[in-house]
Design a protein around this nucleic acid. Structure first.
Lengths: 218, 218
DNA sequence: ACGTTAACCTGACCCCGGGTCCGTTTACAA
DNA sequence: TTGTAAACGGACCCGGGGTCAGGTTAACGT
């Protein structure tokens, strides 16, 4: 809950970031209040919505009791808003992965930690369904520009690099993460596949990728 | 080249499909000509464009020497147009997979056929980059509603079902296909990853998933 | 306290692109 | 030739993301 990995202020583009140690006025209280209100309102709207596209910027502004301009002042565009939300919603998991207890945190054997992280990500997609869909749909390359993605990937790739060549490990990590992409999860769920079945398949996938490639190259 | 898997006429929603064996006027020549012109123009525009979003419906109409209404008459909406294009561009590969010679066609051992198909799909994403990006970006669940996807998935899942439980095989097939999604390929390419490296990683992934899971449950 | 100032707030407005509509044209059939 | 269903086309509509000019207010210096 504490010690955010990224100082929250960095998420807001505006607060004066001039030269080195000079002046820099304190951020206005109403600005802080508005940003919080906007994030809260947006989170609620996405949670309630089925289709992320039905959540309009103007709705968010209104729900937060602010003007539309304020939304764009704080988050610059739709992608920025969604990213900020994702950062919030993944904060807990990010902390657990970086310095939490095993199996998510460091210390657990790779064979347990990888599936644990992947399972957590799958649950994230299941629980924050609409928001995560919004993130993947938002503009070019969105899933990969998401700040959290870098963390997941470097963690997984690092763990795989004990079993595979570095380059392969990088790609395999991307592949594992692609297996829990929101629209895939959404598609399977809507086909009647249960969460349990998804988890089972995912475990199988992790196990396959983690198994030492006995045979030479293929 | 011959024997299209799906009669072309099915791709066009409009040509009269009333009751059983009755009348049904022959499709007008100009209609046929226009559809072909539109597809050709769209294919060219997508090929030339970097960002699929820069290809507008009006542009396509104009490039084909037709009115905007005509585009929508033939393909109903943007998604329809893109899907029709994808069907065209994948026709050759679809035929090769269904009744072509090994390793793509039936008959090759699974350990060769799966990586061959996946490599072909990766090449497709590399060569038809913009069109494939357009397809994945087009509306909700687009990659999975694409008619070709069903074929790739059923083929791969079928092959995997010799090695894995049926449910796992289904999911693993989706996971393999997710590993060649256009935006991932795009992201890696833009990071400087070469086509060769992608192919290598993909082979490694296929090999892992195809290896018999010796150990019991994970 | 109280002016000064820069940051903030707002919602009317702009813009653009997907999709629609209907008056006009045209290919086919009788 | 003529009747007619179907195709055509581009002016038009509309909704939503993003902008901006003008009013407001919280922080700072004195």
């Amino acid at each position: 809950m504490m010690s955010p990995l990224v100082p929250l202020v960095l998420l807001a583009p505006h607060p004066a970031h001039r030269g080195g140690t000079i002046t820099a006025r304190k951020e206005r209280a109403d600005s802080v209040r508005n940003r919080a209100a906007l994030l809260a309102a947006a989170a609620r709207l996405f949670k309630d919505a089925d289709d992320p596209d039905t959540v309009k910027m103007a709705d968010i502004a209104q729900a937060a009791g602010a003007g539309k301009g304020t939304v764009f002042r704080h988050f610059s565009d739709r992608v920025g808003l969604v990213r900020a939300l994702v950062v919030e919603e993944t904060q807990q998991l990010r902390e657990q992965v970086v310095d939490g207890p095993p199996p998510l945190g460091p210390g657990a054997p790779v064979a347990e930690r990888v599936p644990a992280l992947m399972a957590a990500l799958l649950d994230l997609k299941l629980n924050q369904r609409t928001l995560m869909l919004a993130m993947e749909r938002a503009g070019a390359g969105s899933p990969y520009l998401n700040p959290a993605y870098g963390l997941w990937h470097s963690e997984v790739a690092g763990m795989l690099s004990g079993v595979h060549r570095r380059e392969d490990a990088d790609y395999l990590a991307h592949a594992l993460l692609a297996a829990v992409r929101s629209d895939l999860v959404e598609h399977l769920t809507s086909q009647g596949v249960s969460a349990g079945q998804l988890h089972a398949g995912l475990r199988r996938l992790c196990a396959s990728v983690l198994a030492h490639p006995a045979d030479g190259g293929v």
